[in-house]
Amino acid sequence: MKDFYSGTLLNQLHLGYNSAYRELFENLQPGLVAYANEYLLDEEISKEIVQEAFLKLWENKAKIKDDFNVGAYLFRTVRNFSLNHLRHLKVREQYKGFKEQQFQELALNFHALSDVSAEKLLEEEILQRLQVAIEKMPPQCKKIFCLSRFEEKSYKEIAEELSISVKTVENQINKALKIARVELKEYLPVSLLVSSLFV
């Protein structure tokens, strides 16, 4: 994800240029889909919600000014749409015949996404800090993180590809998350940090 969009692009988004929307979509859509899919567990629905979020940006283009953070706006919109979707799922669930376990997981995801920490993490300053933190990750750590996310590889497959043990893969992913936590410690609620400080 590119973090800083130049004034020119913002201006073009403000004016509604197709090319600007295309460029933005091309660069940000994969990350936003990965974010939504973490909660919705359905890539098609996640993609749909991300499309709706970009269309909403277009509808609100009049609000795009020089200090507008497009990335944070899109993340927040995707979060809101995902929450709506999960909220309505309870009604639809009877028809679709979800498995009990899957439903439980979606319910848990709904509560996680409703939690104040989900909102907090999408504040502009925190988003940028997080990106910086991820940039600082050791290359191996980052690579493993990417493989698990983008190529949807299991830990076992990643371990085979990189000729390392499954345990190392797990450790690296946990390490990535811990680095992000430490980087964000001043932003997250104090009570939540107690354990991480002693990790």
Binding site: G31, F75, A112, S117, L121, L127, L130, K142, L177
Partner: peptide
């Protein structure tokens, strides 16, 4: 949430 956002911005 941290995992999800990290996935989103990497």
């Amino acid at each position: 949430n941290l995992l999800a956002v990290s996935n989103g911005v990497i």
